[in-house]
Structures are given as structure tokens and as C-alpha cells.
Design a protein around this nucleic acid. Structure first.
Lengths: 106, 106
DNA sequence: ATAACGTACAACCAAATGGTTGTACAAACA
DNA sequence: TGTTTGTACAACCATTTGGTTGTACGTTAT
């Protein structure tokens, strides 16, 4: 999933398909690279679950999947939570050592 | 940055160094791969700014950098924000078309 | 002083990756 | 019907990448 987000072209495709549903060729026309290259990027995003495709005639309409974006964000939010927990633990240790030797009733 | 987060070993290193500051060899002893491999993963995380190293004698102590984790999360949060904006826009369009032809005073 | 430890880095290798072109096929259009 | 359009996919290529081993060097311990 993070792998899918690691290339700027793919993040750009994600951003565009958040704004509006688009066909693969519409997307492709906005980049310097070949259609096949864009199609592969779309496939990577699709496998990661970050976008969803829908058939409409001969076109394949691509739209972002907000659920997966939220999941990636939640994972990072959990790292931040771990960090806060660490800080809290250090605070506890500090509080302990501040009341260890003698002057507990200061 | 997302590239740095794309490999599970690196996410694991990040998690461990959130919990406590550790030397590179301490980290390395927890994985099947060679010391050099772990050292390279640490280097990638360092270049992405996700961790910070500090010299202490012959050891290099590694700790997570919460600022960068927050930045990655914020980027994804912005994508979600874009999505909400899209939904809001669609709602506006819907409201418009609901009051377009005749029965405005319904 | 010598040995052991922790780290950095270069050289190398296999696999994955981002890109290309070419082919095939279904849908839309002339 | 024949042609164009949109898509998928295979084959190929150059580069990157995750891994290895080996070497070098400063720091700690004997």
C-alpha cells in the first residue's frame, strides 16, 4: 500500500481520481509517459485497493477508494500514538525517580 | 518517504525505535538478515527523515522522528480532505438540480 | 598492544520496478 | 463492414533495490 503511494505519478493519479471519476485514457493523456505505463500505475493502485475500476462501455472508469486512504492514514496515526505512549512512559519514569530517595513529602 | 515506509522491515524498525532508542547492532540482532542489510534500511529511513541517529562512543543510537511520521499522516489526511470536498461538491450539484426546473417553492 | 566490537562503505548479485513497443480484442462509429 | 478508440497484456530493457560478503576504521575491553 505504501509501495503504491511511493511514486509521485501514482499519488497524482490518486488525487485526480479523488476529484472526479475518470477513464484510464483520460488520465493517460495528462502524463508524458505512454498509455501502457499509466495503465500499469492504475493497476498497482487498484491492487493496493486505493482505487476502484468500473466498466462503462469500452471505458474503464477509475475512482479513488477513500476507505483505503483512511486505512493508510490510520496506520500512521497509530505510530504517532505509540510515540505519545512512549513519552507518557518516560514521564512516568521521571515521576518515579523524582520520588524515590527520601523527600517524598516535599 | 512513502518509499521508506513501503517495506515491512523498515516499518518494524520505525516501530521499535519509537518504543526506545537503540543501536544499529541491537536492531540488527532482531532480524534474520545481515547487519549490513539492516544498516542500509536504517540509512533509507534516515534519508527519509523518519529516524535520527546520534553517536555515543562507537555506537550509533537510532530514534524515530515523530515530526516526519506526522507529516506523512498529514499528507494522507489531506487526501481525505479532498475526498470530503468532492462529496460536498456533489451535494451542491444535487441541491442545484433539485431546484432547477420548476417546483422551487415546494 | 592486541583483540573484539560497532559501524560505514564498496562491490557484487538476483529480483523487482518503471518504462517502452507491439499485439489482441471488444465497443463505438463511419 | 471496416475503422477507430479504449483497454489489457506480453515481451523486453535499463535502473533501482534488497540482499550478500569483504574491507577499513575508530572505540572499547583484555
Amino acid at each position: 500500500m505504501f509501495h503504491a503511494l511511493a511514486i509521485s505519478t501514482r499519488r497524482d493519479i490518486l488525487r485526480r481520481t479523488i476529484e472526479r471519476e475518470q477513464s484510464v485514457s483520460t488520465l493517460a493523456s495528462d502524463y508524458e509517459m505512454s498509455f501502457a505505463a499509466v495503465q500499469k500505475h492504475v493497476a498497482v493502485l487498484e491492487e493496493a485497493g486505493l482505487i476502484v475500476k468500473r466498466a462503462e462501455g469500452r471505458e474503464r472508469l477509475v475512482r479513488a477508494n477513500p476507505e483505503m486512504i483512511a486505512r493508510a492514514r490510520a496506520l500512521l496515526a497509530r505510530y504517532e500514538e505509540l510515540w505519545r505512549a512512549r513519552i507518557a512512559r518516560l514521564d512516568d519514569l521521571l515521576a518515579e525517580s523524582a520520588s524515590d530517595t527520601s523527600n517524598e513529602g516535599m
